Computed example of a mutant assay.
Amino acid sequence: MVQQFGFNFILALAVTAALSGCKNDTQANAPPSQVLARVNGDEITVNQLNYLLASQKSVDDQTRQRMLENLVTQDVLVQKAVEAKLDRDPRVLSSIEFSRRQILAQAMLSKEVGTPQPVTDADVQKFYAERPELFEKRNIYTLDSYLVANNTLTDAVKKQLDSVHTPQDMRATLQAAGITFREAQERTPPEKMPQQLLKVVTPLKAGDVAIVVQNDQAMLVLLDSVQPVPASLKDATPAIQAYLQQERAQKLAEQKIETLKKAAKVEYVQQFAAAAPQAAPAAATPANNNDHIKSGMGLK
């Protein structure tokens, strides 16, 4: 089977290798049992593989082999990069230095933050009870959305929208008014919706239309269908625990950053705008504990 790698993947491998620089003496003289592969005599060791595997949710032999192939690809690219003297390129050196500083900053913050206060059963039950739209009364919504210029929604058009109940009705109404629109349909759970949109959609019934305005654009939302898919407290507990744990770690990280900055002597020689609140780096929280955020609350 031929493996294909995107450019971003290859670049990430190359930068990672550049960050580590040349292999240390321990790796260079690793015992034979620790050596997994050689690329032009350059050894790839068990320690390097274990570092990659630590970020995987589950590990089997196929995963190990895939990660080993990634390391081989990395080594081939790094050797070619050094041969081409890219390790002396000012832009590459700047990227390496920025990445080094970022890694050190995140490592220090992780050390400062430590382990947040554990999430209790009472915390989980409170979160569950306060958000029925996400759990006990959870629905999967099929939405038809129509993006238009806000200034095209005259009072007359808005009045006509009262009689719109299907996508066909919506298209006919907008076309008759000469309004240009972009149409999309999405089937989505509440945890993946922006809070503003969820508040608008929750009270709607199938066939209802709502208008969400943002700056000079407006989104006409037609609720096509609603499918009740409640989540029990038992099913939701792992996702809620993970969410609350990350939320606490994030808040603690922000507090630590503020404390450290106040203790430091910071002098701005130039400022381009008023300072905005700064969020803590995501890596300050334990690795892989934000998967439930990336996929909503992790519910199905």
Rank of each mutant, 00 (worst) to 15 (best):
G207P: 00
V39W: 13
L233G: 02
D291I: 14
A218V: 02
L244Q: 10
M297Y: 14
Q278L: 07
L161P: 05
A149M: 04
I257N: 12
T237F: 07
S232M: 09
R66V: 02
I44G: 14
L93A: 12
A28I: 10
I293F: 13
I240P: 11
K262N: 14
V59A: 07
I257M: 14
S55K: 11
D89P: 04
S225E: 03
A210T: 02
E69S: 08
K294Q: 09
R66K: 10
F135M: 10
T73M: 11
Q168K: 13
H292A: 14
N215V: 10
G114S: 03
D216V: 08
T73N: 12
A12I: 00
L19Y: 08
H292V: 15
A122Q: 14
V39A: 08
D25T: 07
E43H: 08
T152I: 01
L147G: 01
R248H: 10
Q195M: 07
M219E: 10
Q102H: 04
F181M: 04
K251C: 04
Q65S: 02
D216F: 11
A282P: 03
A279N: 15
G207D: 01
Q245W: 08
A156P: 00
P116D: 00
E43T: 14
L260H: 08
K265C: 01
V35D: 04
L204R: 02
K294Y: 10
L68P: 05
L220N: 05
V201L: 06
N29Y: 08
A239M: 06
T188F: 01
V164P: 05
S99P: 00
K159I: 02
P32D: 13
L53I: 06
T259G: 02
E69Y: 03
H165A: 08
F98N: 05
D87S: 06
P132H: 06
N151T: 11
Q34E: 15
T259C: 00
N151R: 12
N47T: 13
A37I: 14
M193K: 11
R91D: 09
S58E: 04
A107T: 02
A206P: 03
K126R: 11
P90W: 04
Q106W: 00
V119W: 07
Q79N: 13
K80Y: 05
A14Y: 04
I140R: 12
R101P: 02
D60E: 06
P167W: 09
F127H: 15
Q175W: 03
P230C: 09
D208F: 00
G41F: 11
S33P: 06
V200K: 15
E43L: 15
N215K: 09
P189K: 02
A279D: 15
V72K: 07
P132M: 09
P167I: 09
K300A: 09
N24A: 12
T120L: 00
D60H: 09
V113F: 06
A28K: 15
M1P: 07
K111T: 03
P132I: 14
P167Y: 04
Q65D: 10
I10K: 14
A122Y: 01
T45A: 13
F135C: 11
M67S: 05
V2S: 13
A177N: 05
D216G: 00
D144H: 15
I96T: 03
R248A: 14
K265E: 09
A149S: 09
A249L: 12
A282H: 06
R88E: 13
L13S: 12
I103L: 02
A129C: 11
Q56H: 07
P90C: 06
V119L: 05
A184W: 02
P203L: 02
V221P: 06
N289D: 11
I211A: 03
S95D: 03
L223S: 05
K261G: 03
